[in-house]
């Protein structure tokens, strides 16, 4: 392990970290703008041109607000909750290949933080521990609404995790690899997984909505029933962390969707462009970000279109519709794989 490589990886990690934070920041602005447009409004446009400084203003506001902690709260866990949520949200970006290889001075630089050969499993693991932040936060608030929200969030996430795993397993079956990099590399050109896995994609995107606690699955923070869900008692930047991590999750989920189903950094006609590989890599990264932006837009689009599920509907949908669907998809995939072997 030489220093050169280590510095590169560290700077890449830092860069991606900052990038995710930046994107999440502007995702909040985008959300508000998009919501405005959907409702024939303008959205925030006062802070800076087009409201570009709005996220900064929001962040400042959150920092300036009163740091409130309930008297009976478990102090350490109360702080641990949002931190853990943030941490987990940032962790999963490690295995996403942000682009192909850059060749600078004869050395290949991979634009993926860690090409571990069990990237998909790693994602499972990270997603599965995402529950902790929510549960700890909800419980530590010592508030029944927060606790209910936390329990709801946890059961929702666990339920939808299953169907999501099933959907990813089909991808693993078709590609034969657990490495996200391999999966993306196999979708060279226009050979995307969405063509072979439409049902899997549907299941995955629905589960992604649920895992990110986005409408129509935003039960945990359902204002009308549970005040504010698990973050009822939170204020200031700790609340900001919870809200922020939602946008990071959305970003990562979009990146996962793009990587697993829409070819990641691959784009059609990438072989006939006739430019140097480095350019292809750069264009590919740009294309990936366009895809991610599109899916984030879809997230928002859906949020401002669909109403929220009722809790029993949510559970029934997860267990009785999505999971069987994912299983049928799994069986079908296996069947076709045998058929066209």
């Amino acid at each position: 392990m030489d220093i050169h490589f280590l510095t590169y990886k560290l700077s890449l990690a830092g860069g991606i970290l900052l990038l995710s934070l930046l994107i999440a920041m502007y995702a909040t602005l985008l959300e508000r703008k998009v919501a405005g447009f959907f409702q024939d409004r303008l959205g925030p446009n006062r802070a800076g041109t087009f409201g570009l400084l709005q996220p900064v203003a929001d962040g400042l506001k959150l920092f300036m607000k009163e740091e409130f902690m309930p008297a009976n709260a478990d102090k350490f866990l109360y702080i641990l909750g949002p931190s853990l949520t943030m941490l987990v949200a940032l962790l999963s970006s490690a295995v996403i290949p942000w682009g192909g290889n850059l060749n600078i001075g004869g050395v290949d630089y991979s634009l993926q933080m860690a090409d571990i050969n069990i990237g998909v499993l790693y994602t499972f693991a990270v997603v599965s521990i995402g529950v902790y932040g929510v549960m700890i936060g909800g419980w530590a608030s010592n508030n029944k609404y927060a606790l209910m929200g936390a329990v709801r969030a946890a059961s929702q996430m666990i339920s939808y995790e299953l169907a999501m795993s099933m959907a990813i397993v089909t991808i693993v079956m078709t590609t034969g690899s657990l490495s996200v990099n391999d999966i993306v590399a196999q979708q060279h050109g226009f050979n995307w997984n969405i063509w072979t896995q439409p049902i899997g994609f549907l299941v995955f995107i629905v589960c992604a909505f649920a895992e990110c606690n986005r409408t129509p699955f935003d039960l945990p923070e359902c204002e009308t029933e549970l005040i504010g869900g698990y973050h009822t008692e939170y204020s200031s930047m700790k609340l900001g962390f919870y809200l922020f991590s939602e946008y990071i999750n959305m970003f990562i989920a979009s990146a996962m969707i793009s990587s697993l189903y829409f070819g990641g950094y691959n784009f059609p006609f990438m072989d006939v462009l006739g430019v140097s590989p480095n350019w292809i890599t750069i264009i590919g990264t740009a294309v990936l970000f366009i895809k991610i932006a599109f899916f984030m837009f879809v997230f928002m689009w859906i949020r401002w279109t669909l109403p929220r599920f009722r809790y029993d509907q949510l559970m029934r949908f997860g267990w009785k519709v999505l999971l069987p669907m994912a299983m049928v998809n799994l069986i079908l995939t296996g069947f076709f794989k045998l058929l066209f072997k």
Binding site: A125, M135, L147, A154, I158
Partner: peptide, 23 residues
């Protein structure tokens, strides 16, 4: 493999169940 499965099974499922029960 065991490491990841360990995290998924123990941290992701079993301990969450424990948390649930306690809560």
């Amino acid at each position: 493999f065991l490491a990841v499965v360990h995290v998924i099974v123990y941290a992701g499922a079993i301990m969450v169940l424990f948390l649930f029960t306690v809560m």
